[in-house]
Amino acid sequence: MCSTVIVLWSFVPLLCPGPRPRNAAATRTAILDAARERFAAESYDDVGMRDIARDVGVDAALISRYFGSKDDLFVAALDSCGDGSALMSGEKADFGRRVAHEIVFEPKKAEKLKGMSIMLRSIGSAKAAEMVQSSCTQRFFGPLEDWLSGPDATVRARLLAGFIMGMSVSRELGGGTFNIEPAECEKMRDRLAPILQSLIDG
């Protein structure tokens, strides 16, 4: 009898396996992805930690363990969408033509669209807008001003960002195109390029 019990007991872990051990890196990535989706689709004030936890299938306390507060998670989600460093990766002399072509013709990457959506959704929340402003200053405007250098770098950086984001939003409102003929798109690119370049050259 005793030996039979021992044999049966040895099968318990196989018959009743416990929860699978989580991969910490994969779980953190899943949480960040879910947060990015939520903050891009809803305003900051309408998103709860429990909503994100439910999307991932984890306990809300686990999100706090990985990211801290909701504010910390919001900033992490925004930061994960990119910092605009690609704008500063090419030659300054070719900036206007290169970026104008990208704005008019090249499809936006998914993470950039998410970042744009998160920023637009944050407008209605004073708290979120403050975090967006702080994040953009640290990750984008500061480096851009240093890269531009010269007189009025701060003003030029803001104007440059305004042109780029404004044109990008206009394109996305059209479903990813400007809804004009190809020849007109070329004219738009050719007119936009010297405007952008003038802000680079100072």
Rank of each mutant, 00 (worst) to 15 (best):
I164L: 05
V47H: 03
R189L: 03
A157H: 05
C81T: 15
V47D: 05
R158V: 05
L144F: 10
R28S: 15
G150Y: 07
A153V: 06
K92S: 09
L73E: 11
R191F: 02
A60W: 12
L78K: 01
A34W: 08
M167E: 06
S149R: 10
Q138G: 00
D83P: 04
L144R: 04
A34G: 08
S89F: 10
G124V: 09
A61D: 12
G175C: 07
V56G: 08
R65P: 00
D46A: 08
V12A: 09
L160I: 05
F163N: 02
A110S: 14
D83R: 00
S122E: 09
I63G: 02
G162P: 05
G176K: 07
M116Q: 12
A157T: 03
I6D: 11
T4V: 15
D94F: 02
S198G: 04
T177P: 00
V169P: 01
E42F: 13
A128C: 06
G84A: 09
V99C: 01
S125K: 05
K108H: 10
S64L: 03
L15C: 13
E145L: 01
G202T: 06
I164E: 02
E106N: 04
D94P: 00
K127A: 15
I63L: 12
A157Y: 07
Q197N: 11
F141D: 01
D45L: 02
A153K: 03
F140K: 00
N179M: 12
P19K: 10
A157Q: 03
G142T: 07
I118E: 02
D33Y: 01
S198L: 06
S117V: 03
D46Q: 08
A128H: 05
G175Q: 04
G176M: 06
I123P: 00
G162L: 07
Q133N: 13
I180T: 08
F74M: 04
V56H: 05
R98L: 10
F140Y: 15
Y44F: 15
R191W: 02
C136E: 10
A126D: 15
D55A: 13
E106G: 00
I200M: 04
P194G: 06
G57F: 12
P107V: 07
A193R: 01
L8Y: 14
G176L: 05
L173W: 02
C81D: 09
L120P: 04
A53F: 09
A24I: 15
G90N: 11
Q197W: 03
L148V: 09
F95S: 01
L15Y: 13
L148G: 00
D190Q: 12
A157E: 01
Q138R: 15
I180Y: 06
C2G: 12
K127S: 14
K108P: 01
S170C: 10
G202L: 08
D94H: 11
L32Y: 04
V7R: 10
V75R: 08
V75C: 11
V132F: 01
N23K: 11
G150W: 10
A24R: 00
R98C: 04
A193E: 12
F39M: 07
S149A: 14
G84M: 12
G57M: 07
K92P: 09
I63Q: 02
K108S: 13
F178C: 00
R22E: 15
C81A: 06
K127W: 08
L15V: 13
D33T: 15
E172N: 06
